[in-house]
Design a protein around this nucleic acid. Structure first.
Lengths: 189, 189
DNA sequence: CTCATGGTGTACCGATCTGTAAACTTACCT
DNA sequence: AGGTAAGTTTACAGATCGGTACACCATGAG
């Protein structure tokens, strides 16, 4: 039970879940596509739910790390980094494999708020909201929580609209709206 | 095969699909909860997909009609009606059975753009975007398509955030952001 | 060599999935 | 009454679901 083997299983499962959905992807399919036997799969993950949770954990790590790093690389002020998020999103939307937000889909398939998968998806959004709030604070806005929520709304709306209607319009309008909101938001002091 | 019987089946199926998801709800469960026999169910709907499409059609009708009527009742200017949409959303979020947007969930579970269910969900969003564009035109904005898309982003983002993080914040911030965007959008002429 | 140990493949479990076949009941029309 | 057609019940088909029992096989230790 080498630990890197487990990581590889999570990586592959993440890819398949993202492409085909959670309930629509059976363990049999995952076993075939990862090349591992069913017994081994269940040695690494007690249940399918455990595997989904591991995949979401990996996705959360990857997504947040790459988003934060990209934004830092594209702008050096907090306000600039908030705005840069929408450029990062635009690039993501334009990628071939773009299929919307994995956490929105997870919460859509497991709607019960008491369900661990739903809770973990919500946690991802809370972490993003916290990051935006921190940036808004650093930027010196008078109401950082409110502004962060508005940025989150534009981001989630853009992801949903890009997945359902096409990439260009939502990416452009989200950034334009964000810039206007940032420009007119009151500063503290 | 009374036609109203069919309507009743669609209504009930819509309710169950919305509450429990599409793939997670089997025809057996639907048959039990509607009290109809399996054979009758399949007399009315050739496949489960047909039933889902009928449920989405009903949902689209109900949602758009009630949204449009509510907005017209709450404001008499086009711009006021756009803004009123966010109050209607807030009321919806606060309802007990609120579980997010059925069309976002449908497109999350049936991701293939060629799939009829995905196409119908996308069509619902296009109709909403068209309605917003019409209002923005009537209101005399210089770039109605862009403004309509921004309002749609706020709406979709608010629905997602309300479903995952709670109702109050998203509803309030969506409206605040929308008002600011409307106030600062250039008018034609 | 012998034996324990840990990972593997095969074959299977019962439940549930979508969808169907066929006989039966009910209600209406003449 | 007799016939027709809608709608019912029951039973089932074939596939797939999540999950497991068990025999097999490699490797390293004594």
């Amino acid at each position: 039970m080498r630990p890197n083997k487990r990581d590889e299983l999570v990586r592959k499962a993440l890819e398949i879940f993202y492409r085909d959905g959670f309930n629509a992807t059976g363990m049999d399919r995952l076993v075939v596509e990862t090349g591992v036997s069913k017994t081994s799969m269940y040695k690494h993950f007690r249940t399918k739910e455990d595997l989904i949770l591991a995949a979401l954990r990996l996705r959360d790590e990857n997504f947040r790390n790459s988003l934060f790093r990209e934004c830092e690389g594209r702008a050096d002020t907090p306000e600039g980094q908030i705005l840069a998020m929408f450029d990062v999103l635009a690039d993501w939307f334009a990628q071939d494999g773009f299929r919307g937000c994995m956490f929105i889909k997870a919460s859509a398939e497991f709607q019960d708020k008491a369900h661990p998968i739903n809770a973990q998806a919500a946690e991802h959004k809370r972490l993003l909201l916290g990051w935006l709030t921190g940036l808004a604070q650093q930027a010196g806005f008078a109401a950082p929580e409110q502004l962060a929520m508005q940025m989150l709304l534009l981001k989630e709306g853009a992801i949903v609209a890009a997945a359902m209607l096409g990439a260009e319009g939502p990416a452009r309008e989200a950034k334009d709206a964000a810039r206007l909101l940032l420009d007119h938001a009151p500063r503290s002091g």
